[in-house]
Nucleic acid binder design. Structure first.
Length: 741
DNA sequence: CTCCTTTGTCTTTTT
DNA sequence: GACAAAGGAG
């Protein structure tokens, strides 16, 4: 039973206000998630609401997972029945049931950004548009924005008739949608778009969901865009028990369509809305909070508020400036070592940065100093070539209409089916209708495919075989089957390079993920697996408990907190980024500032900021001065490094522009090229094993067995195990994740 | 049809 | 500097 007296007055007010629209303006660290979870508990325990009728929507999977955990901890019975999910997965679940009404198959595919780009390229080709005139990115952004505004291709064309460039983009949009539909695929934006469309055209279905979800909560409301707002407003339209929680100062996703008006105008749309402000911060020391307040006051477009805390002043904020990014990384690594020696565990520390690219150097130095770390984000595991290839096999087996996936794998591994053959089949598809895979199945009828027919047959036979297999075996067996029969595994094994080994490791990791899915899903099936993978940004928190420093971008740090935070790369031109400095409009700079505010307020006890005077960008040295955000913090809250690191004490950046960029000798130092790194085995984690020859061990897939040999090799161990079910297998300790029995 | 070299673009950030 | 896409040789 939840103890509501642990909450402060405002939090209690938020918990007790259950009916009607409610806006909670929750500053950083003000116990926002706590208020929501207690509110859920209150609804169930005190109001007798069925957990089945409560919905909580978040933006990221991380946030959803965390809320799930906290609700489960707080509500012993029925908590697991509360619908807690991201916008996107909520929509997918709805669409899986009803999308046939909109003319799609239920087993539609979800396209990620890479897929989108490939499809856009096809549109360019079909429409004979030169990407030099309109960069693909621009078109993609424009289309995405249109979708976020709930504009169809027709709407978009109509609105932009007079603008030549935009009407071209309109054509692309139209073609793009046509192809998505032909492929039975939806992109991320479509998930929201189609769900709203479904509700619009089928009010009877909307009503089902209105009846079901009588109490709705939306977290990080400041990051919602137009279509998400429409979605929420529709579902909450009948009972109007809508509680949104947000902080306009933490709105950092405007670039992807987040509409700050959603929070600023909430009271206009829901005129009877109650507003509760949470302004007491429980997270940070006085100094950190003051610094954050000082920085954010420089923004003009915001609701007035000032966070306060009863916490002690704490240590001052450390700022240190280094010669280069390597020095900076080394400085951070040394500091971490020193802190660790003082008894601060590594998992209490986080290094945050503006762009993913900055993580490389940091990684390198942490490696050098033997500091264990974990990186969030970056190159998505599921975007790796080998992983994507195998996923495309699964996609084709599941949804044969996905031409993009067919194209990708038809010649992987090499089967001697080249571009010309594929283009001929595509041509035939254009003329006859149907999909690429159909054309391949009818290769003998397709003009110009005679020579390749036998090879194509080899591919289509495989697909048939896999489909048969999919019908009778488990997903992991199917996966193994693909790996074997296509010769994919063999090809990598024969390569005998470290990179190929890492790729094999990643495929093992994918297999683990599949097994994991099979064990946890209610009714595991191929569509479900692919959906989960499409919507999960990454395999996060697979193993949380290891003591590691965490590295991530400021964006992914939102919603998290750490005792000790390092903000790296505090330089003009990097953070705030060049684009935002040069922009006419100050709003871009304000978004960067909010991002900085988010970064500062992640810290509980100490905050370290650092920057480099010289940094390699695009292969050339760039000089920059300290970030204006550092200078916006009054000196009284700051403490500078051993040399005089006061930002203003610097005379070298005399220019007015802030960033002097020139081709200064690139000063190539002997830094080693980072080897292709496997996700499954971060290189710095010395592999330790707790089993020996003769021990009984358990493997996630192969089951139980006995260790017969352990051979040290490189930075890993090659372990031979005799499994009861599958016989003798050799594997690398770091991939195999063997558990001693 | 495949492999290799060259060229160009990129740095925001996530589902 | 890193990676993908395009172009050219075998």
């Amino acid at each position: 039973m939840a103890d509501y007296t642990e909450l402060n007055q405002e939090q209690q007010a938020a918990v007790h206000h259950t009916d009607g629209p409610l806006l909670i303006l929750a500053g950083a660290g003000s116990g926002k998630t706590r208020a929501i979870t207690y509110r859920i508990a209150w609804l169930i325990e005190e109001m007798g609401i069925s957990p089945y009728q409560i919905m909580a929507i978040t933006f990221t999977n991380k946030a959803a997972d965390e809320m799930r955990q906290r609700v489960d901890a707080l509500v012993p019975f029925g908590g697991d029945q509360v619908w807690i999910a991201t916008f996107h997965s909520t929509c997918v679940r709805i669409l899986r049931r009803h999308i046939e009404l909109l003319g799609y198959d239920r087993n539609f595919t979800i396209y990620d950004t890479d897929d989108q780009k490939s499809l856009i390229k096809e549109c360019y080709k079909a429409l004979q548009i030169d990407p030099k005139n309109i960069p693909e990115r621009a078109a993609m952004n424009e289309i995405s924005n249109a979708k976020n505004e709930f504009l169809t291709a027709e709407d978009y064309c109509r609105e932009n008739q007079d603008d030549f460039r935009k009407s071209r983009i309109g054509e692309i949009y139209r073609e793009y949608q046509k192809r998505l539909r032909a492929n039975n695929a939806l992109d991320f934006d479509d998930l929201l778009f189609r769900a709203v469309e479904l509700f619009q055209f089928h009010p009877e279905i909307l009503e089902q969901y209105q009846e079901r979800f009588r109490y709705i909560m939306v977290d990080e409301y400041q990051d919602t865009n137009r279509i998400q707002f429409l979605f929420v407003r529709m579902i909450a339209g009948k009972y109007r028990n809508l509680c949104v929680v947000g902080d306009d100062d933490q709105s950092i996703y405007r670039f992807r369509g987040a509409d700050i008006r959603n929070i600023l105008d909430f009271e206009k749309v829901f005129s009877d809305a109650a507003v509760i402000k949470l302004e007491q911060n429980y997270r940070s020391t006085g100094n950190i909070l003051n610094a954050a307040n000082e920085v954010i006051t420089n923004n003009r477009g915001r609701k007035a508020k000032r966070l306060w805390t009863e916490n002690a002043e704490g240590q001052k904020i450390r700022y240190r400036e280094f010669e280069s990014e390597y020095d900076e990384a080394e400085g951070i690594a040394r500091e971490l070592k020193a802190m660790n020696a003082r008894g601060i565990p590594y998992e209490d520390c986080a290094i945050l940065y503006r762009t993913n690219a900055q993580s490389r150097v940091l990684e390198e130095k942490l490696l050098l100093y033997n500091i264990p770390y974990r990186i969030f984000g970056g190159v998505n595991f599921y975007q790796r070539k080998e992983v994507k290839d195998l996923l495309c096999y699964l996609k084709v087996i599941d949804n044969g209409r996905d031409d993009l996936a067919v194209r990708r794998i038809v010649n992987v591994p090499k089967r001697g089916i080249g571009m010309t053959s594929i283009e001929r089949a595509a041509q035939y598809t254009q003329e006859q209708g149907g999909n690429l895979l159909d054309a391949l199945f009818e290769a003998e009828q397709v003009p110009g495919l005679k020579r390749a027919e036998a090879k194509i047959r080899g591919f289509t036979d495989l697909i048939l075989e896999f489909r048969a297999r999919a019908a009778e075996s488990s997903l992991s067996e199917l996966f193994e089957d693909i790996l074997e029969k296509t010769g994919y595994r063999k090809e990598l094994e024969q390569e005998q390079t470290e990179e190929a080994l890492a790729r094999l490791g990643n495929l093992d990791e994918l297999l683990n993920k599949i097994v994991d899915y099979e064990e946890h899903a209610d009714e595991p099936d191929l569509s479900g697996l692919l959906e989960e993978i499409a919507l999960v940004a990454d395999i996060d928190n697979l193993e949380e408990n290891r003591s590691c420093v965490v590295l991530m971008t400021l964006h992914s740090a939102k919603g998290l907190e750490f005792p000790h935070v390092f903000l790296s790369g505090m330089e003009e031109g990097l953070f705030p980024g060049m684009m935002s400095i040069l922009a006419e409009d100050s709003s871009e700079l304000e978004e960067e500032r909010r991002l900085c505010y988010v970064g500062i307020t992640r810290a509980q006890k100490t905050l370290h900021m650092s920057g480099a005077r010289r940094r390699m960008v695009h292969g050339e040295s760039r000089y920059s001065k300290a970030s204006r955000f550092v200078e916006e913090i009054p000196e009284e809250y700051m403490e500078y490094g051993e040399q005089d690191d006061r930002p203003r004490a610097r005379g070298y950046a005399a220019g007015s522009g802030g960033t002097l960029s020139g081709k200064v000798s690139s000063g190539k130092t002997g830094y080693f090229k980072k080897p292709y790194q496997s996700y499954a085995m971060p290189l710095n984690q010395a592999v330790s094993i707790d089993y020996a020859v003769g021990d009984r061990v358990k493997h996630i897939k192969f089951g139980q067995g006995t260790v017969t040999e352990i051979r040290p090799g490189g930075r890993d161990y090659e372990v031979t195990v005799d499994f009861e079910k599958v016989g003798v297998k050799k594997m690398f300790a770091s991939f195999a994740k063997l558990k001693k029995m």
